[in-house]
Nucleic acid binder design. Structure first.
Length: 565
RNA sequence: CGGGGCGUGGCGCAGUCUGGUAGCGCACUCGGCUGGGGGCCGAGCGGUCGCUGGUUCAAAUCCAGUCGCCCCGACCA
């Protein structure tokens, strides 16, 4: 029974003043969610319906690859997290119970499940396994934002695979790739599976599923040649610099008083920014200094840099630049540098460049990497739109929201938690693991972002809180009401989820609310239609209307609904 | 963590500079009209002005502290 007069669906004409993202505004306005605090959101009945529709798709596809659903606690002993070295993560909520025991609120469940598997799995005969659950995650986010897109508490479907070896993990991983592809197809989202950084999850490979939308926090590099990667790790061949200065036989000093930034120096010397060498003084994990240089129009990519070096780095302080790098900030350059130089590949083969002279108010021109300074090479820059992708296509960059991720963990968690098994020869091995997450709330929000128009949400059929929004314009006792009542019963008998708007509101109000909430199909029963022997159907996407015969309206509506995206 | 902004009825806002009985629109309630695109008329309900303290005859307004929320950046296992 979903009669709107008694259903908690508090729609608003105006969005909260502090809402920025489209999904944030619309999900609040449509009465799907309400905020309880920073990064804390309540799902109202209609919003929860959409969430559960995602869950259902995910559950079906996880079960289809042999996943077994279970449930683990959010509240966990700190000890587990100490063992895997993750207790010190800032985002991990920590608390104490009345006996002063250290506890955490889980932000993910590798520790808990690996703990159990370590105890229950002893033999190669017990493997492989895919286990998953839908559970609340708690993360002490530095900055929750954009409604339900980045929250401190959210539900995640997290799955974990356990295999005998790397080959088994590859198989489990591939199963998840296929399941996830189906999940996002069925959800009706536009999505990309992109190569991603493994981060501190450790392990040997990772992909993210990205749904492009304006509110996205990530950037993905895409090309028509099928390339898709998070810009965090994307690689490409740089575009050539137009208007490079003539090469010189040797570097030549040039006065550049007060010109410290790339823009200032390029402007002063009348050369393109790409003719400059941008120098980033950094300090490695072990305290060793390093000068990273990229082309002036490029940006250093800290993740690629970290991966190239095998350890994180931080920017040097001004004081360190003066003392360790022996150069005034703003005029640091690789020629004559006292520290090792790591140069980005895009600088290879270039000549006639401009670099800091390590002297106040002075740069060098005619600089040539390799000739004028020793280098180690590495791909350590952000790709830029227009670069050539590894498949030969042209890269474009789009904002996107991460709706799922899959990681090959290897033995990152099984080793510290002692998850081992005996093989058929009686020798012991660590279990090979993978972990696979999906955020249903993000799928919901991404669908809103991707489908919304100026009237509201236009759900993909698979995620809509209601399949059909039936609107009657008749009051109690009028024919338009009794006919609509009958149609409501007929529609429900087909098994579809129908929201029946029998409120005593004006037609305009009901239509506006229906388009805001965004069910794929709206049916309107009014006096005019009845006189013509018709029910009006409006397809939400495109808002096109057509007449259905009053007789057999339910069947006609279902048929129409089935053809919708 | 750095920068910026905001807390006044359910929502959106004015009032704060220059202290003097708290207002507007929407929503809500009641009555009437209207009845295919957020309609009209009338009458109402609803606010410790985030909180605490201070200054003052008097504080939404000035001062101090504190809590909360948003945006940009950093971060995001």
């Amino acid at each position: 029974m979903t009669r709107q007069s008694g259903y908690l669906l508090p729609t608003e004409k105006e969005a909260p003043a502090d809402a920025e993202a489209v999904s944030h505004k619309l999900m609040v306005r449509a009465g799907l969610v309400r905020q309880l605090g920073a990064g804390m959101w309540t799902y109202l009945p209609a919003g929860w319906r959409a969430h559960r529709r995602v869950e259902r798709i995910v559950r079906e596809e996880m079960d289809a690859i042999g996943g077994q659903e279970l449930l683990m606690p959010v509240l966990q002993p700190a000890e587990l997290w100490r063992r895997t070295g993750r207790y010190d993560i800032d985002e991990l909520f920590k608390l104490r119970d009345r006996r002063d025991a250290d506890l955490v609120l889980a932000m993910t469940h590798e520790e808990a499940l690996t703990y159990h598997v370590a105890r229950e799995v002893r033999s190669y005969r017990d493997l492989p396994l895919i286990l998953y659950h839908f559970q609340v995650k708690e993360r002490d986010e530095p900055r929750p934002r954009a409604g339900v897109l980045r929250t401190r508490e959210f539900i995640m479907k997290d799955a974990y695979s356990f295999d005998r070896d790397a080959a088994g993990l590859d198989r489990s991983y591939q199963l998840h790739v296929e399941a996830y592809d189906r999940i996002f197809d069925r959800s009706g989202l536009e999505w990309y599976r992109v190569e991603s950084d493994v981060g501190m999850m450790g392990g040997v490979g990772a992909h993210e599923y990205m749904a492009p939308c304006a509110a996205g926090e990530n950037e993905v590099a895409l090309s028509d040649a099928g390339y898709a990667a998070n810009v965090e790790i994307a690689t490409g061949q740089a575009q050539a610099v137009a208007g490079l200065p003539e090469p010189l036989g040797a570097p030549e000093p040039v006065d550049t008083p007060d010109a410290r930034t790339i823009e200032e120096v390029a402007g002063l010397l009348g050369v393109p920014e790409g003719a400059l060498i941008k120098a980033l003084p950094v300090i490695r994990d072990d305290g060793r200094p390093l000068l990273v240089v990229v082309r002036g129009d490029h940006r250093v990519n800290e993740i690629k840099l970290r991966n190239r070096l095998g350890a994180p780095v931080r920017q040097a302080t001004e004081e360190e630049i003066r003392s360790v790098f022996a150069a005034p900030p703003g005029f640091v350059g690789p020629v004559g540098a006292r520290v090792p130089v790591l140069a980005d590949e895009a600088l290879r083969g270039l000549a006639g460049l401009v670099a800091g002279a390590n002297e106040e108010g002075r740069h060098l021109r005619g600089v040539e990497p390799g000739r004028d300074f020793d280098v180690n090479w590495g791909d350590v820059r952000d790709v830029a739109a227009g670069d050539r992708c590894p498949n030969g296509g042209t890269i474009r960059i789009e904002p996107a929201i991460e709706v799922g991720n899959i990681f090959k963990l290897g033995t990152r968690y099984s080793e510290p938690l002692g998850a081992r098994y005996l093989d058929e020869h009686g020798s012991e091995h660590a279990i090979w693991m993978g972990s696979y997450g999906i955020g249903p709330a993000r799928i919901v929000a991404a669908a809103v972002e991707q489908t919304a128009d100026e009237h509201g949400i236009a759900w993909p059929r698979a995620l809509a809180p209601f399949d059909i929004h039936l609107v009657t314009l008749g009051k109690e006792g009028e024919e338009a009401r009794t006919v609509a009542d009958r149609l409501y019963d007929d529609l429900r008998a087909t098994g579809l989820d129908v929201l029946y708007d029998e409120r005593s509101a004006s037609a305009g109000e009901k239509f506006a609310d229906a388009e805001l909430l965004g069910a794929p199909l709206r049916l309107t029963v009014g006096r005019k239609g009845i006189e013509a022997g018709e029910v009006e159907a409006q397809v939400r996407r495109g808002r096109e209307r057509r007449a259905l015969p009053l007789d057999g309206a339910a069947d006609a509506a279902v048929e129409l609904w089935r053809a919708l995206p």
